[in-house]
Amino acid sequence: MKVKNKFNMTLTACSANESFARACISAFAAQLDPTLEEINDIKTAVSEAVTNCIVHAYKEELGKIYITAEILDTNAIKIKIRDKGCGIEDVSKAMEPLYTTVGGERAGLGFAVMQSFMDGIKVTSKIGKGTNIVMIKKISLRYNNG
């Protein structure tokens, strides 16, 4: 698997950047000629991951979110979203649908959406160090690919 193109960005973990992060990734992914559904899947997954950083990782501080995206020669996009926040105590529990630590208006579906809308996801986390999410989305090949 070779990396054909790559971009990095660092964002302040404030909620106004949720839409900004989605827009950046979707503009970058456009070169793979994704369908509207594929681009929306990617945007939704990125939105969930970035929101997790803001709501959970940096509850008490305005930390930084590190995003890397790579276009792979397998016609896929690999997205890494990393924070240096509080970390997740039990990753498999956090990934259970409807599980949430904040309750109220959060549905507890962030990871379920990422899992369902992307083709692969890996989550690693260390308490006090932060969380690292790697997601892959394959983009279907369409007529004009040479």
Binding site: S19, R22, N40, K43, T44, S47, E48, T51, G104, E105, R106, A107, L109, G110, A112, V113
Partner: peptide, 13 residues
């Protein structure tokens, strides 16, 4: 134009 799981929280609430 776009909705993530925050919209689900909105509906459930």
């Amino acid at each position: 134009s776009f909705m993530d799981s925050s919209g689900i929280g909105l509906v459930m609430g």
